[in-house]
Design a protein around this nucleic acid. Structure first.
Length: 882
DNA sequence: AGGGTCACG
DNA sequence: ACGTACGTGACCCTC
């Protein structure tokens, strides 16, 4: 049975555009209208199952209606550029779906739809019209219905004869009369002034049509109305003509030409990927997965290597380049089992169960051979996990995870299946799909595991050239090969070595802090006059604001804020507040640091083995998890004591820490070329004092500690992409004062101001910003019409080159330091990196040379127009090393 | 699972 | 009139 669907293209595109926020893909193309349109399209295909389809568009400016009334559509606002540039995109999408689209000079989409609806009706083919325009209701018949958008994009209501009657009490054709009387401001159709929908409907219910109303002017209720109708009779007749949809557009095609057979995902997927329609992509790929999977599974022939047949497969190790994947049972590779390993080369896919791998000499030789090139996903994790199984691995020359990260560090999904979905015209089931999650998680074995793993290595093998090319094109190849890959190997070693912690020291701290917490708890209950959960912001707010009547200074989404900055302001008003602040402090130390560290400590070696995530931050920094060793307390003495439990792992060894002084401001001085700032660093001045002198116009001797504190906050603000509001918050001053500070700063350092303006301009032009080593971050929101999003992107444009360059520099220092340790034959080891600081452990006799080398390497890691300065200190624990 | 809070650079 | 300082991760509570 045939079914024709006619879509009012402009109407749906408009609706989608205004219903959705102004989305863009990474390359800055606006996609919201195209996205909404596609959602609607897919819904219609699913629900209507059309055999014939057409999307009609308005093209050109004038239609036959303008002859009748030259003001037609006269008052309509211009289509925004962000929408009109998406119309070609929508046509591309329709082409990909294999759906006809059409526009005709001199006619509106309505008329094309009307003509085809009439034809189809004549041929007894049922028709669904999709639009947001009520005009089209006039086309409804026994066989023609209209799907009208309601709110959002895909929420629709079907209008047939009955529905129109229910809603308006009219027959479909009377919709024309309705508009003749009430007009339509969006099309600039006048109708009768003062007659809206209510009056118009009342009149039509009584007299049936515009002509009927005009013939009975005398019988109309109310003097005013009579006058108006009489006066505008001609205008009403004309309005009716304008509102009438033509069914006689000369079309050079017939219904048969509009045949639609189900779309082919092969054509649609690449376009969805380009436009980053992730949800829709998943939807069509889900529908398609079974088909693709069987094809893939058939195509991919793999072999399982076992003790008996190893000889048959050893030829594979002759190959110059293979992909390797070591499967793990849990994400923490320090604790994971490796059930098996897969290898892929052109036309060959092997699965090696762990037991076989451990005994297979040729495999182990190949694995440890640095001349044998290997592509992996996460070489750091792979290396560590294998090492835990007693397998040495070398020669990782490509990391799919790191490549994907460098290509777009803002992307949050770098799981292999996501990368395959983005970069290949293919799909791979995610680990969650294969293994399940939570309680439903299961382990695979045998054939199933082998298939899943070889699919992964096969994908890795194909991904490598694709990613390699993208790296080249974005000028990221050197960053990848010369910096990130070497850093991955260094981090693997750091994680493998781990940091020794003093368990007894932690236990003592735990006892002491717990006693303190109990004391505070009792005191707080006493002051509150009741017991409650101090850890619950909700219960705490009740006590503070309801029971004790303290003023509410700030709200959160869900209630009253009890954050530290609020409590500090409330402290003078009630004794309890200070105790709560202290309680929070101690509570944090116990749960996150004392208990947290004890939980992560490995019994075997008494060490903590964190994992540095090298593919997470948008700026190029590292992060650290399980536990996070980059946020161990230092600012307050009570917390700083935690550092006493971080000790050297060998007798008579020391902890040595080397940190960059003011690296971000020095980078800013270099990037901006500001003479005054450069001079300040060249003469080794205290930069915050210098800023205070300039901003407050005083001599060095007259800088008060308050001035220096304010200047320091301004400097932070500059690095973060300053705003007066942000600065006012951090200093607890008025926005006006903050604004004045900023203005005076920019007057003192005009080069910085110029640089900030320039970097934002560049971000707008290119769509991204870069660091000194060409690390790239895209900023699609730089074009957003939303003030907040745009402002955020602008601040990011200012901050990322600074933070990111500092990250580049310390990574470079790590690579060179690792070479230096090797060359000097030192047994000192790098343990941790904390953004601008490197922490080592070393035997006492190496402290002199190590301190010397570290300072040199770090200070000379990159040549800037200002010197880099490094402070080095050592001690028996991390606490004492600084 | 998400929000609030807080630890670091 | 709006509502932000940049970059992270872990814990607790609440639903």
């Amino acid at each position: 049975m045939n079914k024709l669907v006619l879509i009012d293209g402009n109407s749906i595109a408009f609706r989608a555009f205004y219903a959705l926020p102004l989305l863009t893909n990474q390359s800055g193309t606006y996609t919201n209208a195209a996205y909404g349109f596609t959602m609607m399209l897919m819904k219609v295909l699913e629900e209507e199952k059309p055999t014939h389809m057409l999307v009609a568009f308005d093209i050109g400016k004038t239609t036959f209606r303008h002859k009748e009334y030259k003001e037609y559509k006269g008052k309509r606002d211009k289509t925004p550029g962000e929408l009109s540039e998406q119309l070609p995109l929508i046509r591309d999408l329709l082409d990909a779906f294999g759906i006809q689209h059409y526009g005709l000079e001199g006619y509106e989409a309505d008329d094309i739809i009307g003509t085809l609806a009439c034809q189809a009706d004549g041929e007894e083919v049922p028709v669904t019209i999709v639009s947001g325009d009520k005009d089209l209701l006039q086309l409804v018949t026994e066989r023609v219905s209209v799907l009208m958008t309601r709110k959002g994009v895909t929420d629709t209501q079907r209008y047939d004869i009955q529905a129109i009657s229910d809603r308006y009490g009219l027959k479909p054709k009377q919709i024309i009369d309705l508009k003749g009387l009430m007009g339509d401001s969006s099309d600039n159709i006048p109708g009768i002034p003062g007659v809206g929908e209510k009056t118009a409907l009342k009149l039509l219910h009584q007299f049936g049509s515009v002509e009927g109303v005009l013939a009975h002017v005398d019988e109309l209720p109310g003097k005013k109305l009579k006058e108006r109708v009489a006066e505008h009779a001609e205008q009403a007749r004309m309005s009716k003509v304008l509102a009438t949809i033509s069914c006689e557009v000369p079309l050079d095609f017939s219904l048969d030409d509009l045949k639609f057979e189900d779309f082919d995902p092969v054509n649609v997927v690449p376009l969805f990927k380009r436009l980053e329609f992730k949800t829709l992509l998943k939807r069509i790929q889900k529908d398609e997965t079974p088909a693709i999977e069987t094809v893939e599974a058939k195509k991919l022939t793999f072999a399982t290597v076992n003790r008996e047949n190893t000889k048959e497969w050893e030829g594979i190790f002759e190959r110059a380049h293979l992909a390797l994947y070591a499967e793990m049972t849990v994400p923490n590779y320090h604790r994971a089992e490796v059930p098996g390993i897969a290898l892929s080369g052109e036309g060959i896919h092997l699965y090696i169960p762990l037991e076989t791998a451990l005994e297979w000499k040729a495999f182990k030789k190949w694995l440890a051979d640095s001349a044998k090139q290997k592509t992996a996903y996460d070489v750091k994790g792979t290396h560590v996990a294998l090492k835990r199984q007693g397998l040495e691995s070398e020669g990782f020359t490509f990391d799919v995870l790191l490549a994907s990260y460098l290509i777009n560090p803002s992307e949050s999904e770098h799981e292999l299946s996501d990368i395959v979905g983005r970069k290949l015209d293919d799909s791979l089931p995610s680990d969650e799909t294969v293994y399940g999650k939570g309680a439903k998680r299961r382990q695979l074995e045998g054939e199933e595991l082998a298939r899943h793993l070889t699919r992964k290595t096969e994908a890795l093998f194909r991904l490598q050239p694709v990613l390699e090319k993208e790296l080249q094109e974005a000028e990221l190849a050197s960053l990848f090969y010369d910096l990130e890959l070497p850093v991955a190997k260094i981090l693997a070693e750091m994680e493998w070595v781990g940091v020794k912690v003093d368990k007894e020291g932690l236990r003592k701290l735990e006892k002491e802090l717990t006693a303190k917490l109990e004391e505070l708890t009792t005191k707080i209950y006493g002051l509150a006059g009741t017991e409650f959960n101090i850890n619950s912001p909700k219960q705490l707010a009740e006590i503070l604001f309801d029971k004790l009547g303290l003023p509410v200074l700030k709200k959160t989404k869900t209630g009253y804020s009890t954050s530290a900055d609020v409590l500090e302001k409330l402290a003078p008003r009630h004794e309890i507040v200070e105790e709560i602040l202290h309680y929070r402090q101690v509570g944090k130390l116990i749960s996150t640091y004392v208990e947290g560290l004890l939980k992560e400590r490995f019994e075997e070696d008494g060490k903590i083995h964190t994992r540095f995530n090298q593919a997470i931050t948008a700026t190029g920094r590292l992060s650290s998890t399980d536990p996070n060793l980059q946020n161990i307390p230092i600012r307050l003495e009570e917390g700083r004591r935690i550092r006493k439990v971080f000790v050297p792992s060998e007798k008579n060894w020391w902890i040595l820490s080397a940190d960059y002084s003011q690296i971000e401001l020095r980078v800013l001085a270099h990037l901006s070329g500001d003479e005054s700032l450069i001079e300040a660093f060249k003469s080794n001045m205290d930069i915050h004092t210098k800023t205070a002198m300039d901003v407050f116009g005083v001599q060095k001797e007259d800088v008060t500690s308050q001035m220096r504190r304010h200047a320091k906050a301004v400097n932070f603000g500059i690095v973060y992409g300053i705003s007066d509001y942000g600065l006012s918050q951090s200093l607890n001053i008025s926005r006006k004062e903050a604004g004045e500070f900023i203005q005076r700063y920019f007057e003192s350092y005009p080069g910085v101001k110029q640089y900030m303006d320039e970097i934002v301009r560049k971000a707008r032009k290119d769509g991204y910003v870069t660091t000194m080593l060409r690390r790239r971050r895209y900023l699609p929101d730089i074009h957003s019409s939303n003030y907040n999003r745009r402002s955020f992107a602008e601040r990011t444009a200012m901050n990322t080159p600074i933070q990111g360059t500092a990250a580049d520099i310390i990574k470079k220092a790590m690579v060179e330091m690792s070479r230096a340790l090797h060359k000097e034959n030192l047994s000192a080891r790098l343990l941790l990196q904390v953004h601008d600081e490197l922490i080592f452990e070393a035997p006492e006799e190496e402290l002199g040379i190590l301190s010397d080398r570290v300072r040199r390497v770090m200070e000379e890691a990159i040549q800037l127009d200002v010197p880099l300065k490094v402070d080095v200190d050592s001690g028996r624990t991390w606490y004492e090393a600084k």
